[in-house]
Design a protein around this nucleic acid. Sequence first.
DNA 1: AGTACCACCTGACGGC
DNA 2: TGCCGTCAGGTGGTAC
Length: 262
Amino acid sequence: MPELPDVEVYRQYIDATALKQKVKRVQVNAPKVLQDISAQSLGRRLAGERFKRTSRRGKHLFVELTDGSHLLLHFGMTGNVHYYAGDGEQRPKFAAVVFTFENDCVFSYINKRKLGTVSIIDDPEEFAAENRLGPDALSLSEQEFLERLEKGRGGIKAFLMNQRLMAGIGNEYSDEILFQARLHPAVGLRSLDPAARKRLFGALKSVLHTAIECRVDPEKFPRSFITPRRREGAPCPRGNGTLVKQTVAGRSSYVCPQCQQA
DNA sequence: AGTACCACCTGACGGC
DNA sequence: TGCCGTCAGGTGGTAC
């Protein structure tokens, strides 16, 4: 799940729960997710620190600590977070890293497939530069977006998912954006006319904003979205036919052949 | 520069 | 019910 809207909702969730709490101890159940840090030193770095404030860039979530360093969370394909009272509720399944606070509440970084990342970094900006992460997709102006479009050469779906051009869009939301913009994912950037370019930018913003407003709950998504019915043979929300699945940019993609011409 | 493919991990699901 | 193959919303490396 975790693309930009999901990670934004996780961020808001942390703000509403674990923020300002002081860490008592850290338990690492899946050392695999730790990057450039041992379980022991993660615990040492965090003990006594508070979760001061959160930020996000694309699919990366940062929690600033009292000492100015940042806890970095990336969720891969199966990451999630959960906060609960330590005594009553039982530890969620697949809890990879568990943070216990002074108030005995628990913040859990969950990751079933362990493809995510937990680390401590000095500075998110520096991290983004080192990893060549593009600007957050929601902070991108139309002009910046169009400039990037003009420089690109490949297919439109690969463009949207390229984290170096803009950060945050993954497989699922790229399909939704392209459906809303009525563009086929395999269309080459250079064949897009100005109206299509503008439409794409509008769809990008509205899809991401809408998903966040709905707290990424597919049941709350507008009827016009394909995400809640993301499977082959599902009806096109515009009543134009049925969705088909095809591989584009190496990923499973769902398109309405009537609305989205190749 | 862009794409295609593999690897990383492990669970969920459908078919037999 | 049980086993097996297939697929999964991310990312990074490698090889064209």
